[in-house]
C-alpha cells in the first residue's frame, strides 16, 4: 500500500526540477543583492561571483585549485577504498579475522574522521601526504563496513542453490558472490566519495597551500567575499557531480534489483 501524501518535486526533486533548483536559488540571490538589502561585505551578487570565477579561470588559478583538490581526492579515495574493500572482505570471510580486528576497527570508527586531523598533522605535516591520508581514512570506513555487510549478507540459500546445481567455484564467485555483493559495495563507495570530498575541503580549510578549501580560507582572510562564495559554489557543484555520478553508476550496475 503506497503512501497517501508522497509526490515528486520539493525535497526530492527529479529531472527538470532538480536542475532548475540551483537556478532558482541563484535568481533569488541575485534579486536579494539588487534590492540593496545586504552591504557588499556581507553578500555579493552571483554576477560578481561569476566574474571572479571567470577571471580565476582565465589566470589558470581556478584550474590549479580544482586540479589539486581532485588529485588529492582521487589518490586518497582509491587508497582508502581499496583498503576498505580488502579489510571488509577479510573480516567477512574469516571469523578469526573478525574476532581479532573488528574491536579495534569499531573503536576507531567512533572517532569522527576530522578528529584525526591534528594527529595526522603532527605525523605528516601539512603537505600532500597528510591530505591524501585523511581522504583515505574518510573513504576507508564506509567502504569497509559496506563490504562487510555485502559479503556477509549473501543469503545461505543462494549457496545451497549453487550446490544443488553443482556450480563450479569460479562461476560461484563471479556469477553469484560478486553480483550479490555489488549493490552494498557500490552504496558504500558512493557514501565514501561524498564523505571524502567533505573531509578534504575541511582539511584544506585548515592547512593547505592550494585547493578549493584553501581558496575559501584565503578569501576569508582577505575579506574577499566573492572568492569565498566562488569556493562555495565550486565545492557544491563538485560535490553534486560526484554524488550524481556515483548514483548513476550504482543504478546502472544494480538494474536487476527490484525496488
Amino acid at each position: 500500500m503506497r503512501a497517501g501524501l508522497v509526490r515528486s518535486g520539493g525535497v526530492h526533486p527529479s529531472g527538470v526540477s532538480a536542475l532548475l533548483a540551483p537556478f532558482v536559488l541563484l535568481a533569488l540571490w541575485q534579486l536579494a543583492c539588487l534590492t540593496g538589502l545586504f552591504p557588499p561585505q556581507v553578500l555579493v551578487p552571483p554576477s560578481e561571483v561569476a566574474r571572479t570565477l571567470a577571471s580565476m579561470a582565465a589566470s589558470g588559478e581556478l584550474e590549479r585549485h580544482i586540479g589539486e583538490s581532485l588529485f588529492r581526492l582521487g589518490v586518497g579515495y582509491v587508497l582508502g577504498a581499496a583498503a576498505g574493500l580488502a579489510f571488509g572482505t577479510t573480516i567477512a570471510l574469516s571469523r578469526l579475522a573478525e574476532a581479532a580486528l573488528s574491536p579495534l576497527f569499531m573503536a576507531l570508527w567512533q572517532v569522527p574522521v576530522i578528529a584525526f586531523v591534528p594527529m595526522l598533522v603532527i605525523f605528516l605535516g601539512i603537505d600532500e601526504p597528510f591530505k591524501v591520508a585523511i581522504v583515505a581514512l574518510a573513504a576507508f570506513f564506509p567502504v569497509a563496513l559496506a563490504t562487510f555487510d555485502g559479503v556477509r549478507g549473501v543469503p545461505r540459500a543462494w549457496f545451497e542453490v549453487a550446490r544443488v546445481y553443482r556450480t563450479r567455484l569460479a562461476d560461484l564467485v563471479w556469477r553469484i558472490l560478486v553480483p550479490a555483493t555489488v549493490p552494498a559495495v557500490l552504496t558504500g563507495l558512493r557514501v565514501a566519495i561524498t564523505r571524502a570530498w567533505i573531509v578534504l575541503v575541511a582539511a584544506e580549510l585548515l592547512a593547505a597551500d592550494s585547493g578549493i578549501g584553501q581558496m575559501m580560507e584565503m578569501g576569508r582572510q582577505l575579506f574577499r567575499i566573492d572568492v569565498v562564495l566562488a569556493g562555495v559554489v565550486v565545492s557544491g557543484v563538485i560535490g553534486f557531480a560526484l554524488d550524481r555520478g556515483a548514483k548513476a553508476i550504482e543504478r546502472r550496475a544494480t538494474r536487476w534489483r527490484t525496488a
Binding site: 518535486g9 532548475l20 561585505q41 578549501g213 565545492s235 557544491g236 553534486f240 554524488d243
Partner: peptide
C-alpha cells in the same frame, strides 16, 4: 514543498564545512 524543496536541495549540495568561511565573514 514546491517553494522550499528545491532551494533546500541546492543548499544541501555544499559541504557544510564550506559554509564556515562565509559565516566567519558574516
Amino acid at each position: 514543498d514546491r517553494l522550499l524543496g528545491p532551494l533546500l536541495h541546492a543548499i544541501r549540495q555544499v559541504p557544510l564545512i564550506g559554509w564556515l568561511p562565509l559565516l566567519g565573514l558574516w
